[in-house]
């Protein structure tokens, strides 16, 4: 690791002010990506501003038909929250599958979506549930937030404060974990909103990061059942291919995971 200056911010405003002062500052949430990258000397921030201890950024709230997870809430809290399990059980289940126990105790929802790893779990949930990302400056629809590999709509110095999920009619998540990293080799989140819209998002599969799967959405509109997806063909072009999964295999997984997610959603 290169020399850096560590700051522990006590409020979002203080964090934003510290960021503005640093020459090459970086925000630190759970540190599950940034710290390994810094240890490898692949990142060399002048200042590291820790958001993880800011009280206003931690917690889970349900208000009417909206579940809000504040940005620095660790995955473990989401996985074990009674409120999440009641409102969107698929989201609690998703959080329980992220990485391993050590990652789940430290990693946060804000850190995960700000990083936008193309195989991360949360982006699939945000996209399928039509979540809204709230920052210290604005609200951004999930649709507009994820901009491809490791890229988001966040501006320099902008801090995610929370993610709001509309509580769906039903939702399900199914994941084939990457055998080494435990990211998603391919995972699919399916949701039927209270207004009847069907949204399906896949992560880990596409060369451009998390994506909607219109073919499966169309099939599920005709019938919300795993067998409705039987006839769908997913093209392998533009899908990731590596030592752990060919693009053809990932295309198959999109379909199989979608079927299992629908089965899990009930």
């Amino acid at each position: 690791m290169y020399q850096t200056t560590y700051h522990r911010a006590s409020s979002v405003d203080e964090a934003a002010a510290l960021f503005a002062k640093g020459s090459e500052a970086k925000f630190l949430a759970g540190g599950q990506t940034l710290l390994p990258v810094m240890k490898q000397r692949l990142a060399s921030p002048s200042d590291v501003i820790d958001l993880g201890k800011i009280k206003e950024l931690i917690g889970i709230e349900v208000s009417g038909d909206t579940l809000t997870v504040k940005a620095a809430t660790p995955h473990y809290d989401v996985a074990t929250s009674d409120a999440v399990k009641k409102a969107i059980p698929a989201l609690a289940y998703l959080a329980s599958l992220i990485g391993d126990p050590a990652v789940r105790y430290r990693g946060t929802i804000g850190g995960s979506i700000a990083n936008n790893d193309p195989a991360a779990d949360y982006p699939a949930a945000l996209l399928a549930l039509g979540a809204t990302v709230k920052t210290n400056k604005r609200s951004i629809a999930a649709e507009d937030f994820f901009k491809g590999l490791f890229t988001t709509a966040l501006e320099d110095g902008e801090i995610i404060t929370s993610v709001s999920f509309p509580v769906p009619q039903k939702a399900g998540y199914a994941k084939m974990p990457h055998p080494a990293s435990r990211f998603a080799l391919t995972a699919v989140f399916v949701a039927q909103t209270k207004s009847g819209e069907i949204r399906v998002a896949a992560t880990g599969a596409s060369q451009s990061g998390v994506m909607r799967v219109p073919a499966i959405e169309a099939a599920l509109k005709t019938s919300w059942s795993p067998s409705a997806i039987d006839g769908v063909t997913i093209s392998a072009s533009n899908l990731l291919s590596d030592i752990h999964g060919t693009s053809e295999y990932r295309a198959n997984l999109i379909k199989v995971m979608a079927q299992r997610a629908v089965a899990a959603a009930g």
Binding site: D100, P179, A180, I243, H244
Partner: peptide, 24 residues
């Protein structure tokens, strides 16, 4: 799970636990 893989030019492609699958 485990396989230490090189590409055709001798570059290792499994030189970390993110790529090399140790049994858990």
């Amino acid at each position: 799970l485990e396989h230490a893989i090189y590409d055709a030019n001798g570059q290792p492609v499994t030189a970390s636990f993110m790529d090399y699958s140790m049994p858990r």
